[in-house]
């Protein structure tokens, strides 16, 4: 329904006014900030598929060679990146001012971080022969960037969940690195992907509770 009538200067019932405020707040938050749970789900599934395929290839529960498994991982991550950029673009469109600066710089930080990581990966490939040790080093660095940017993203956009996830990814990364190249993938496959999926569920529950308290 389009609110087209100009007769809404009429007196407003108090309960109706409160309901209008709450419903307008819900709509605005949804339209301006999007659904973080959906983003976490997309990344959780991408990691589950990517790390899962690599894990299956390494431990033989999937009939796939290492190189094609790495390609599957790359495609899964690329798809998640595309979804994230499209969604972030949709919500930032039509907004000017402070948040467009912070949003742009945050995006630049991700891009530059992974550009440096890509460059470093080239160096690692040149000096490390073992396929899985290479993977562990590259992923170890990638997750360091992810963890730090999630923590700072949470503080920048006032999103506690995001900061907690950043801490979680760094802890998992450290634990996985300490477990050695033999177990790195297993630890990451379970607790890295799991972190995103648990965050998606918790965020959904939090949103539902908030919507119910507003009803």
């Amino acid at each position: 329904m389009t609110h087209d009538a100009l007769d809404d200067d009429r007196p407003l019932d108090l309960h109706t006014a409160l309901r209008l405020v709450k419903s307008a707040e819900d709509t605005a938050r949804r339209e301006l900030r999007g659904n973080e749970a959906l983003q976490y789900l997309v990344w959780g599934l991408a990691w589950l598929l990517g790390f899962g395929t690599l894990h299956g290839s390494r431990f033989g529960w999937l009939p796939i060679d290492h190189e094609p498994a790495l390609a599957v991982f790359g495609v899964a991550i690329l798809l998640a990146i595309v979804v994230t950029i499209v969604v972030a673009g949709r919500y930032s469109r039509g907004i000017r001012g402070h948040s467009s600066f912070t949003g742009t710089m945050y995006g630049v930080a991700w891009a530059l971080g992974f550009l440096v990581m890509g460059t470093l990966s080239g160096v690692i490939v040149g000096v490390v022969d073992d396929f899985w040790v290479r993977g562990m080093l590259m992923n170890g660095i990638a997750i360091l960037i992810v963890g730090l940017l999630y923590i700072t993203g949470g503080t920048t956009f006032n999103d506690k969940t995001q900061s907690v996830m950043g801490v979680w990814f760094l802890v998992v990364d450290m634990a996985a690195l300490l477990s050695g190249s033999q177990h790195y993938l297993t630890v990451f496959f379970i607790f890295g992907s799991g972190g995103f999926l648990v965050a998606a569920v918790l965020e959904t529950v939090r949103r539902r509770k908030q919507a119910q308290s507003n009803a």
Binding site: H3, D8, R10, L20, E25, A28, G97, H98
Partner: peptide
């Protein structure tokens, strides 16, 4: 008033120092 209440509520949700198209 309904429309102005909805409008100002929405504008209040736009980030600090931001403008909306």
């Amino acid at each position: 008033a309904e429309s102005r209440l909805r409008a100002i509520t929405t504008l209040n949700e736009v980030g600090e120092g931001d403008r909306i198209a």
